[in-house]
């Protein structure tokens, strides 16, 4: 875990993610604070974890995600460092 760039979210996944050339991208919905609004953000996983996580995360899941922020092509995305599925319908 990176101490100086560290995010912790509870997220749901409204759509199926895309695994492409060792990179897995998936849209996550994070509940707003304190209003409970929905924030749609991009999660990404690189390397060997990408294939594993693409099988683990699906639209029925809810997960606690440890990640760090990065900017790619001017867009904010969150690189998953660790993930724990907390609900699997």
């Amino acid at each position: 875990m990176n101490v100086v760039n560290n995010c912790q979210f509870k997220a749901k996944f409204p759509r199926i993610g895309v695994l492409d050339q060792g990179t897995f991208r998936i849209t996550g919905i994070v509940p707003g604070e304190p209003t409970g609004t929905t924030n749609e953000i991009q999660f990404v996983v690189y390397g060997t974890d990408a294939a594993d996580l693409s099988k683990k995360i699906n639209t029925d899941n809810e997960a606690i995600i440890f990640s760090h922020v990065q900017i790619l092509d001017g867009k904010v995305e969150f690189v998953i460092d660790n993930l724990e599925i907390i609900e699997n319908k």
Binding site: V3, Q8, V30, V69
Partner: peptide, 11 residues
């Protein structure tokens, strides 16, 4: 602070 929507960083 909530643990389910939290971002800490040295900025």
């Amino acid at each position: 602070m909530t643990r389910t929507n939290n971002f800490n960083a040295l900025v």
